[in-house]
C-alpha cells in the first residue's frame, strides 16, 4: 500500500517530465538552434531552408537605415567569409566593430539573415584571450 502510493507519486513526476520533454521535442526551434560560424554556414545550402539558426562571427561594419534608424544592417565576418544581417531594435553596448557577435534568426527569401536576437559576450577577463 505504502509502496503503491510512492510509485504513483513518482509516476506523476515522471509523467510531468515526459510531457515537458515531448513538448520541447515538438518545438525544437524555440529551444535550440544549430550553431555555425560564418564560414561554416556559407558552405551549407541546407541551413538556408528557413529554420532558425545561430551564427557567430566578428562584427565588420554596421549602418542604420536612412529612413528608419531602428533598422540596422551589418556584416559579420569570419575566416574571410561574410554574412549580411538585418536587425530591428536597440543594440547592446558590446555591439562594437571588431567584437565577437552572435545572431539568432533565419534567412529570408533574398538570402539576407534576419536576426531576432543579438548575442554579445560579457566583457570580463576571466576567459582565455584569443590568440
Amino acid at each position: 500500500m505504502k509502496k503503491k502510493k510512492f510509485i504513483i507519486a513518482g509516476g506523476i513526476l515522471l509523467g510531468a517530465f515526459v510531457f515537458l520533454g515531448v513538448y520541447i521535442a515538438q518545438n525544437p526551434d524555440v529551444f535550440f538552434q544549430k550553431e555555425y560560424t560564418v564560414s561554416q554556414l556559407n558552405g551549407l545550402v541546407a541551413a538556408q531552408d528557413g529554420t532558425s539558426l545561430r551564427v557567430m562571427g566578428k562584427l565588420a561594419s554596421f549602418a542604420r537605415d536612412a529612413g528608419n534608424s531602428l533598422l540596422v544592417r551589418f556584416v559579420l565576418t569570419e575566416n574571410e567569409q561574410n554574412l549580411s544581417v538585418v536587425y530591428k531594435g536597440a543594440l547592446p553596448d558590446l555591439f562594437v566593430v571588431g567584437n565577437d557577435v552572435g545572431v539568432v534568426g533565419k534567412f529570408d527569401s533574398t538570402g539576407i539573415f534576419q536576426a531576432k536576437t543579438i548575442i554579445t559576450k560579457c566583457p570580463s577577463k576571466y576567459e582565455p584571450a584569443k590568440q
Binding site: L20, V30, F31, F32, Q33, K34, Y36
Partner: peptide, 17 residues
C-alpha cells in the same frame, strides 16, 4: 562535430515548473 545553441527558453521552460 555539429554545434547547437541552447536558448534561454529551454532553461525557463524546464526550470519554471
Amino acid at each position: 562535430g555539429e554545434r547547437i545553441g541552447v536558448n534561454e527558453a529551454f532553461f525557463n521552460t524546464v526550470n519554471g515548473p
